[in-house]
Write a protein that binds this DNA or RNA. Structure first.
Ligand code: FES
Ligand code: FES
Lengths: 168, 168
DNA sequence: TAAATACTTGACTGCTGTAGTCAGGAATTA
DNA sequence: TAATTCCTGACTACAGCAGTCAAGTATTTA
């Protein structure tokens, strides 16, 4: 259950544009080469991602000298969930593709024991990512959801404090 | 951002024991071979997982004929987060290991743009999994957190209903 | 028009980590 | 002793991720 670079880099790049494109009155275009350098991302790899972001209408591009990328909408109206979806970062905890007849993963036919659980978890993540805007991210305004619950605190007492460290 | 089989199988197996071990007064031991068959999991692979579950004190084992596994605590006192942690399913959206000097991933030194976001997401998932017990799972009592938020509903209007389908 | 800048696209590849296998051993019951 | 079940570590194939490469197209400046 790890986030891969596609989703991570896409959000990092979008945040970079939101932050660095505030020059002129019509927000300044940010060249991809600068993004790649600032965020330490390989340029050709970024190009792949932006191709998708553009296709989904999240960014606008301008070519030629002085060109670059701008956000298609204000940062407060672009949600992280959209970015993830645009670049094809899957947020899917279930492994049953009943419609596609993939026999990979779960028991064919009926639901497995835990289908409801993973489905609820997917929703949970989906809701979270859909509720946070790019503006929230650059403002570091992601809302701490309190500390760990008492349930997990009990767990951590057993496994030691590095478990908490790990979650941060 | 997918759940891998380690975590999934571990929870499936634990749920299986909770469901099928209700025979005698001291709950009946469930042999691993039965779990493997019912849940369609390779037996040697399951053995790996149970080795960890036992080491973390989530299950008790009895060898010999008539032996098998039982839950170490009542199902209502075992939380999904514990199971995940026991088998080493990482729930970590950040990619910065500052303490371990891994230069992999994020920009060394300061935080990247999005550290707070991924950190908050990790917490969010962590809290969720820590709040659901094994009993909740077998009762299908995972609590629907409502449907998608209004934010994401706007997204889905654009990308079509299969996006919703995908999230289920 | 020519040169410079920057975006666009598709195909290709190395490699890490996941998922799963295999063989042998130890405890318990009958 | 024989049968059943758990226990352990080392080993491997392969999908999918992360990243590269190369050639092409569009726009602006001079
Ligand atoms: S996750 Fe859907 S049937 Fe197993
Ligand atoms: S995720 Fe922690 S610094 Fe990037």
């Amino acid at each position: 259950m790890k986030l891969n670079t596609k989703g991570r880099y896409a959000v990092m790049a979008m945040a970079d544009i939101a932050k660095c494109g505030l020059g002129g009155a019509p927000s300044k275009a940010v060249p991809m080469a600068q993004i790649a350098e600032r965020q330490h991302i390989s340029l050709p790899y970024l190009e792949q991602l932006f191709s998708k972001l553009r296709r989904e209408g999240l960014v606008s591009s301008m070519r030629g000298p002085g060109g670059g990328y701008t956000l298609a909408r204000p940062a407060s109206q672009i949600y992280i969930g959209e970015i993830m979806q645009a670049v094809g970062e899957p947020v899917k905890m279930t492994r049953c593709n009943r419609e596609k007849n993939e026999s990979t993963g779960c028991i064919g036919g009926g639901d497995c024991n835990t289908h409801e659980l993973w489905s609820a978890l997917s929703d949970h993540i989906y809701n979270f990512l859909g509720s946070i805007s790019l503006q929230d991210v650059i403002d570091k305004n992601v809302g701490s959801f309190g500390s760990l619950t008492s349930n997990l605190r009990a767990v951590n007492e057993k496994t030691g404090p590095e478990a908490i460290e790990e979650a941060i």
